[in-house]
Design a protein around this nucleic acid. Structure first.
Lengths: 238, 238
DNA sequence: CATTTTTCTGATCAAGCGCTAATTTACAGT
DNA sequence: ACTGTAAATTAGCGCTTGATCAGAAAAATG
């Protein structure tokens, strides 16, 4: 998983099928059906904005696509509309509802569930494009970002802490609701893992090759350490 | 610590002494000594670039300073020079060498040392300006960023793992060198804490008011869970 | 082949960008 | 109060930016 990649995170040597002719010569004019061209623009825009940020210029994007700049505006009335579409494309349908079932599957030990979840999760979103678009849009203060974080809190962190309690015979959140601090432990596990992606694609420094091993170790650390912390939190208040 | 702030992280109502007249009326021309004006520009540039990124325009910066735009160029030959100066100002001299001594003070239990270190560390760098400038410069691929991360790895993470081993009678790194995976545990603790800052100043979502309590809990989790993980890592390799 | 349809390009605009040069003006030293 | 000096402004240059629009050209249709 997470194969050897270049700094963009794309397979080395990749020049994917749909991909544009980067720095192609004066290609003959080619007409494409509306949907196809549109998709082409969106996909290259994702790569492009992920690389340089949303202030990247439409002329440079057009050059990478091997088309003229005004053509972009025949598909998206404004640059902002294109950016909005990029958000949709990046965030949409990368969420797998089966993750939530996995976290609740008490036939498996909690540690196993967590490693499996984070393996799947990181496989889906640990990409150059996703991580950088997420951070760029965060810096811009875009709303979709905050909605995503709320989703993760409700669908993942609450589940994780519910299961952690159950695994150690502690009261369910129905009886003793979560404190801010308790949920924060799940944020902590998540942060320790997501920070790997930040190091790789935002700071662009070397990270361990064996990401899955690191995830397993972080989860192990969490499973060994967190229950006692939760127990203390509950007993102190109760 | 970390008082109630607005989204910029500045005290609400603050309009600090040196600060510029935001949106001031047509102020009378005011002459300042060279050093003073220079400092003024740098400080506002930090706030400004932290907010909008390094593509923020010199005209807007000048407006916030209550000066004309060409004046900036009498102090900094190019915009890039000003940005370079911003890096220096932000990163320089926020590192306290006493932190390193604290981590090695074996009169204190390791958990206590770690909480004290992270309290001090976050107090120094958990600011709107530092965190956002750090991420913006990371996205830009600036070198100073990578140097900072190398500093933290050598001065903090290696120390933390050395102390963790010592506290549990495990071999010193001189005898059994650190594996990538082992150092990664310290990265994990760091990530779980730094991610709080990212949530607050990059994503700009609500975070717990009691940061120190969260830090204490993360450290507790680490101290309870990590030793067993390290022990396994060492024994597996022989 | 001729005609229609629709994609795509070339030329261009108005606004905004970093930066420069000439000029004005606040203040210190006498 | 006068004068010299250096801080500050005014005006503007050359280039880039997102966006417009008339017309060229490729495919679809008959």
């Amino acid at each position: 998983m997470i194969p050897e990649t270049d700094s963009r995170g794309a397979q080395i040597g990749e020049e994917d099928g749909v991909g544009p002719a980067q720095a192609a010569g004066p290609r003959k004019r080619k007409r494409l059906p509306r949907n196809e061209r549109e998709q082409m623009i969106v996909e290259e825009a994702i790569r492009f904005f992920a690389e340089v940020g949303f202030e990247g210029q439409t002329r440079e994007l057009a050059r990478r696509l091997g088309i003229t700049q005004p053509l972009i505006f025949r598909y998206f009335p404004t640059k902002e509309d294109l950016i909005e579409r990029v958000y949709q494309e990046v965030y949409l349908s990368r969420w797998d509802p089966r993750w939530e079932e996995l976290l609740e599957d008490r036939d498996l030990p909690l540690g196993k569930r967590l490693t499996e979840f984070y393996k799947a999760y990181t496989k889906a979103i640990f990409t150059y494009e996703w991580v950088r678009i997420f951070v760029y849009s965060g810096l811009k203060g875009v709303n979709i970002n905050k909605r995503y974080l709320a989703l993760i809190r409700d669908r993942v962190f609450k589940r994780v802490m519910t299961e952690l309690r159950a695994a150690h015979g502690l009261p369910s959140p129905d009886d003793v609701p979560f404190s801010e601090a308790e949920l924060e432990l799940a944020w902590g596990l998540h942060g320790s893992i997501f920070y790997i992606a930040i190091r790789k694609w935002i700071y662009e420094v070397e990270i361990p090759s064996d990401i899955e091993g690191v995830i397993a170790a972080e989860v192990e650390n969490f499973v060994l350490g967190a229950p006692a912390v939760v127990e203390r939190m509950i007993s102190v208040r109760g």
